[in-house]
Each structure stands twice: as C-alpha cells, then as structure tokens.
Nucleic acid binder design. Structure first.
Lengths: 367, 367
DNA sequence: AGGATTCTTGCAACCGGTTGCAAGAGCGAG
DNA sequence: CTCGCTCTTGCAACCGGTTGCAAGAATCCT
C-alpha cells in the first residue's frame, strides 16, 4: 500500500493522472521552482516575482492541483471544520439551525461536520468525542442536553459554543434563549383573548428549554391571577406524536380547557390533529399556540400562531461566536429575541359571554 | 506559530495539558516504548506482548490520547469522511435523506461532510469542488442537478454516488428513483376514485425528477383514456409557496379539476392552504395527493395521501453504495420502491353520480 | 544442544504542505 | 566601484501517525 518509491516520478509523461491528485512538489518541478515557492504563491504569504508566479499558476492549472487538506491541516494545526452536534438532522427545528450554522461558517471558509445525538445523552457525548478525535477546530452543541460539567471538561480540549443555557467557562460560550419570556408572551396572548383554562404540553421533562418554558407559563398565569393547575400540564416528546398523545390525555382527564400552549410547533401540529380527531375545531373550540415558528407553520391548516425565535439566526450567531472563539476573540453575541406571531390557530374564548375584540389577523399569512 | 522546539517536552510535569492534546510519541515515552508500538496497539496491526500493551493502554488513558485525524489521514491517504451535496439542509426532504446517509455511514466509521447547493447549479458545483479539495473519500450528490458530464469529470478525482438519475461511468454509481412509476401510481389512484379532471403541479421545470413525474402523470392519463391538457399543469418550486401560487393560478384559469397531483408533499401542503383560502374543502371538493410521504404528512389536516419513496432508506443505500465504491467493490444496490399511502386528502369525485366504493382509510393514520 | 523459524519491537522513511533560516540576487547610496 | 540593504527563493525541519525493514528475543525443530 505504501511502498511507492518512484525514483523519478514518471519522467516521460507529464499530464495529470486520473484518480491521483498532484502534489506540491510535482507542480513545483513542472514550474521549475521549489515546493516552498508554490506554497507561498498559493497562500500569498510573501511576494514572488511575476515570471515564476505565472509559471506556477500555469502548472497548477495544468495538473488541476488542489492542496491536500489533511497535509495542510497537519501542518497548520487546524482543519477549518467545526463540529456540530444536533439531535436529529431531519427535524424542521434542527434543520433550520443547521442551515444558519452552515451559512455563518461558510462566509469565512469553514464547514460544519454534523452529527446527530438522536435525543440520547450518551449519543450526544459520543458525538462530541468523535468530533474532537476528528480534529475539528471547535464544537457547537445545538440545543443539547449534555451536563454543564461535561461541557466544561470538553472545553479544555476544544472551543465550545452551546445554545439554550447560560454557562461560563474558558473557551466556552453560551447563547441563552428567551424560553421563559417567549412562553410568557404566548400565555399573555391567550389570556388577552379571554382564556382562563390554559393547558400546556411540555417536552421531555428534564430538558432545560422545556423547564424554562414551563416557568414562563406559570409566570404568565400568576400575572393574570390564574391558579396553576398541574393537571393541565401534559408531557410530550417535542414531536408530533407526543403532541397527539398528550392532547388525548388532557381530553381524557375531562378537565376543561379552551386554550393549549405547546412547548414547540411540532407538538402543536400533533395537538391540532388530535383535536380534529375528537371533533374539536381550532380555534373555535380550542386555541392552539406553538413555539419556534417553524417555516411550515405558515402553511398549516389553520396557520399556526407561534412564538418566533429565529432558529436560523440563532444558528448563524452560534457560528459567528464559534469563529470568534477560534480566533481567540471573546464573542459578544446574544441569541435573537422572541416575538409573537399571530395567525389563525388562536381566537377568543368561546365560553366567555363578552365579545373579545378580535386580534388583528392578516388575510393570507403574516410572514 | 511553529517554532515550538521543546528540547525535552516538560520533563517535570507529566499530566495532560489543557488545550494541547498528547501525541503518539509522548504516550510512547510514558509507556517506555516506541511510537510504532503504540500505533500498532491502537490499530491492532500486529500482536504485542501483554505487559507492554497494558502499559501503553494506561498511558493512553492517562493522557486521554486521541490520534490526530489529520496526521492519520495524511499517512493513510483517506479521511473517513464522505462529502454530501444537498440543496438545503432545512427541508424535510433533504433532512430525511441526510439522516439516512449519516446512519449508513456511521455504521462503518465514516462521517458526512454536508454542503448545501441552495438550488443553484453553480453552488452545487462549488460544493463538489470544495469537498474534493477538503479531501473527502467520496461525494454523494443527493437529488442534484449537475450535468452528467460534470459528474463524470469529477468521478475522475473521487468516487461519486448520485441519486435520481441513471448514469454509468467508472467510480460513479447512480440510484434511479421510480419517479414515473410513482406518479402513475398516484394518478391511477385518483382515476380509481372517479376523477377525470386531474391537475398537476410540477417542480422547477428542468429538474430530472420533475420531468419524470410529469411523464408518469401523462402515462397514467393515457392508460385511462384521458386527454392530456397542458393547461392543467402548473409550475411550482418544490416548496409550499410554489404550491400556493400554482394552485391559485390553476383556480384562476377557470379550468375545472376535481383532483390535484403535486410533484412533492411540500407543494401539496401549499396547495391545501390555497384551496382552503378559496373556500374549497379537501378532499370533498378537490382531492390532493403528494409525492415523497414526508413524516409530517401523517400529521397534516387532513393527513395527506402520498406516494411513499423512503428518502431515509434512499440515503442509507446511497451511503452503502459509496462505501462499496470506496472499498473498490461494485455496488449492487437499487433505490427503494415506491408505494401508495392512502390517507384522507383524497376521496371520490364529487361530480360523478355513481358512488365510488370508498378506499380503505384507517381511522388515525396509516403509518 | 544447535540451528532454523517465528514473534516482538524499534528505527527511520515516508504521507504532503508550511515556514524559519540563510544564501544569493538585485538595488541604491556613498 | 564597493558596501550594505532589501527582496526573492531554496533548503530542510517540522506537523503526527503509519509501516517496511531488520535486529534481537523467543520458540520450535531434529
């Protein structure tokens, strides 16, 4: 496999060989210069006389030369690759975040190496380890669940950016999402429409985002002098399926509710389906509101009211924060703010006698 | 930046230093052996005596040693990384495909390096070039539009797997999707429900998948002795927005139709919204059928009838085909077959007097 | 027991770019 | 015309694993 020790690399032929890319030294020989000169021309490290430059450039074109990334990475000690840990690459939420990350990295010549944690902490852990082993220049953990301690430990071997929590450590930067604030926004909207019995479907119970959103829900209830009823909280799984199940549980409990706040949009999609199956209309019988404002929420039937937190923007900012860390600068970025987007899945409480002034809702959508 | 020439690498301290990973030689010194021995133990290349093995393993643990991927890649001539070109990472379609690819690669220790072509041929081209420059061991072009000639040219420098077309060249493998067959399935289903005026919303016009699905649509019409009417074909963009626009155009043309076949599920989502806006009910006024059977189609209102072509499975098979190519074997895989999944967005033609026997539709969903 | 095998292990030369150092070329000033 | 300066360019030593080769140790054979 090794062993290739051509004394004079095929002196007779000079064209590029298929499937075997040229090396710096081959190009150098062709142009009659040394390898270092070629390297310097490619990287623009120092000035090179015009004649040589032209000759070298011709040789580069002739052999279609591309510097070997592994060799360059080895010499420079960096790979221009950032590891990204998501939970699932197929998921509107992570998809949008990854798009933002990719866009943010590409601007400066970096590329993301993406791995999926499959919602399992052990997998997430394995991902980070494998990414480090692959020599990435940094790791972005997007909405992950790894413990703070683990993250701090990993930050010792590679810069880390983490979204969805607040954590301070050297070479680690965190972007905190306004989970509680967004949840408060959602519940206030429902209260404003006259709802008093507002159910909540949470995500997996120990996820930091879920905990915070529950907190925001409680705060908004307190604000409106509504007692918090734990029986109006059901547990989903961040996916449609969990939304269906949780909604059916809530309905089965016979506890009346006229509005439903879901921990994320996908859960809300499931909730809408479950309500439809039970012959309940959204928003006439039950108002439903989500969180994230996924792109597809605009196109749901009915279009979903949601709390917008631009995931794409969050991804892009994570990427920039990471590039700052890599360059040794201290990032100065925060997560984008949250914002209520009112569409057609929420409406006035049908129970109240008094007419609630209808919220302004655009005719087609409110993009 | 280089210059580091520690005569004796910090002989006093011996613990791992933060941010600076240990090298093979450091581990070797700690264990009192040579670097080659450590390498051989790690890779299991040859037998090593038990005592040394234990000492080395202890040293590896002590320094938390992970071999540098760049160096290994340089020495071995491969990176265990496969480049993947998608159009958009945030897109249920590509998301599912990428998940399959990741799963298929991970099984054998490979990881995907994903880049987005953003639906632009030039970007797609740039992606392939950058991936090659990064030294990936192969490139999977997932549902791309690069010309056959370009692909063949690239296959000279790196193995290539391409989905969605049929192409033969050395070190290139293609997985052909049954686009036409799937489209025929969809239209036959509609015909079976009594529909005769069946509209079609295509994707971007020059995309191979779109062309093939149109062909299948025409074939099924011919089969049922229905004349093909080009005015019943509208152009979308593979996304919800295009589905909305195309549907509004079809409705504005005043040409009656009772069923609508959409080139993919996202287009169908948009179509459903547009119909809803115009006060038309799916499936009572118009039947809608999609293509792809995205996971979220199960949770639409109403759940969408679609032609299932397991994208995830396609991704996984692409990955396996690529690994075959890399290993020098000839892949023997084909794309997964298509299959009709009947849900609730299609129903009997409301216009026909005769009652059409209702298709069997499960109560909740037909996963 | 002596010689022939086989096994273990280290040395050193790779893989392909990068870069400090110094030699040589080119140029201006005295 | 010579000295000293700057600019261009090549040499060689890295980066950190891998592996052919051969020396030495261990094992087996007659």
């Amino acid at each position: 496999m090794k062993k290739s020790k051509f004394p004079a690399p095929t002196p007779g032929k000079s064209g590029p060989r298929p499937g075997q890319s040229a090396t710096l030294r081959i190009v150098a020989r062709e142009a009659g210069v040394s390898a270092s000169t070629v390297s310097r021309i490619i990287n623009g490290t120092v000035n090179v006389s015009d004649g040589l430059k032209r000759a070298v450039e011709a040789a580069i074109v002739k052999f279609d030369f591309r510097p070997n990334a592994a060799a360059r990475g080895l010499a420079l000690g960096r790979t221009s690759t950032i590891g990204v840990v998501a939970q699932a690459i197929d998921s509107p939420f992570y998809g949008e975040g990854l798009r933002g990350i990719e866009a943010g990295l590409r601007q400066r010549g970096y590329a993301p190496l993406i791995m999926s944690g499959n919602w399992r902490i052990e997998d997430e852990d394995r991902c980070v380890q494998e990414l480090i082993a692959r020599g990435v220049d940094g790791v972005i953990v997007f909405a992950g669940r790894l413990s703070d301690a683990k993250l701090k430990a990993y930050a010792k071997s590679v810069p880390i950016v983490i979204t969805g929590r607040s954590l301070r450590a050297p070479r680690l930067y965190s972007l905190l999402i306004e989970d509680a604030g967004g949840a408060t926004l959602a519940v206030r909207h429902l209260v404003g429409l006259g709802h008093r019995q507002i159910a909540f479907i949470t995500g997996s119970e120990n996820h930091p985002d879920a905990i915070e959103r529950l907190r925001g829900y409680k705060e908004a209830l307190a604000e409106a002098d509504i007692d918090f009823n734990p029986k109006l909280v059901a547990v989903g799984d961040w996916h449609e399926e969990g939304g269906v199940r949780a909604t059916l549980e809530l309905l089965a409990s016979k506890l009346p509710f006229t509005a439903l706040f879901c921990v994320n949009d996908q859960t809300a999609y499931g909730a809408c389906l479950a309500l439809y199956r039970q012959g309940l209309s959204v928003p006439h019988d039950v108002s439903v509101i989500g969180f994230d404002d996924l792109p597809s929420s605009t196109y749901r039937l009915p279009p979903l009211t949601s709390v917008r937190q631009s995931i794409g923007e969050l991804g892009e900012r994570s990427a920039h924060a990471m590039l700052d860390l890599v360059a040794g600068r201290r990032p100065r970025l925060v997560a984008p703010g949250v914002e209520l987007v009112v569409r057609e899945s929420t409406g006035p409480n049908p129970g109240t006698g008094r007419k609630v002034p209808s919220a302004k809702r655009p005719a087609h959508d409110s993009k």
